[in-house]
Amino acid sequence: ENVVSAPMPGKVLRVLVRVGDRVRVGQGLLVLEAMKMENEIPSPRDGVVKRILVKEGEIVDTGQPLIELG
């Protein structure tokens, strides 16, 4: 699984990683606000951040690609 998608609609509050960062399974990639709750979106696997597909403040839909892992 190379693309991390939004599990719910919401607003991207914070991106916690940068392109080139090594991440571990379960590590927070970004914080999504949904229904006034902050939800940290975890990495599904170990890898390297290849691309960040959203910006802070952006509104996303369920299933929208957020981050690509390499």
Rank of each mutant, 00 (worst) to 15 (best):
E1W: 00
E1A: 00
E1R: 00
E1T: 01
N2F: 02
N2Y: 03
V3R: 01
V3D: 15
V3N: 14
S5A: 13
A6P: 15
A6K: 02
A6S: 06
A6C: 00
A6T: 10
A6E: 03
P7V: 13
P7G: 06
P7H: 09
P7T: 06
M8P: 02
M8V: 10
P9M: 14
P9G: 03
G10A: 15
G10T: 15
G10C: 01
K11A: 11
V12M: 05
L13E: 15
R14S: 08
V15M: 10
L16Y: 05
L16G: 11
V17P: 11
R18I: 11
R18Y: 03
R18M: 12
R18Q: 11
V19C: 01
G20H: 02
G20E: 14
D21K: 02
R22K: 14
R22N: 15
V23T: 09
R24V: 05
R24G: 08
V25M: 14
V25D: 15
G26T: 09
G26E: 11
Q27T: 03
Q27W: 02
G28Y: 02
G28E: 09
L29T: 13
V31Y: 03
V31G: 05
V31C: 01
V31K: 11
E33G: 14
E33K: 12
A34P: 10
A34Q: 14
A34K: 08
M35E: 05
M35Q: 09
M35W: 08
K36Q: 06
K36G: 05
M37A: 06
M37S: 06
E38S: 13
E38W: 06
E38A: 07
N39W: 15
E40S: 07
E40G: 10
I41N: 11
I41V: 11
I41E: 08
I41R: 10
P42D: 05
S43I: 09
S43A: 11
S43W: 08
P44A: 12
R45V: 15
D46I: 08
D46P: 02
G47F: 03
G47W: 03
V48N: 08
V48Q: 08
V48I: 12
V49T: 05
V49E: 00
V49N: 07
V49I: 13
R51K: 03
R51V: 15
R51L: 14
I52F: 13
I52E: 12
L53Q: 11
L53K: 05
L53Y: 09
L53R: 03
L53S: 14
K55V: 14
K55Q: 12
K55C: 01
K55H: 05
E56M: 03
G57I: 07
G57F: 03
E58Y: 06
E58P: 02
E58V: 05
I59S: 08
I59E: 11
I59L: 14
D61A: 07
D61F: 08
T62R: 03
T62V: 05
G63M: 05
G63I: 07
Q64W: 12
Q64P: 05
P65W: 11
L66G: 08
I67K: 00
I67G: 15
I67T: 12
E68F: 02
E68H: 00
E68R: 00
L69M: 07
L69F: 14
G70A: 07
G70I: 06
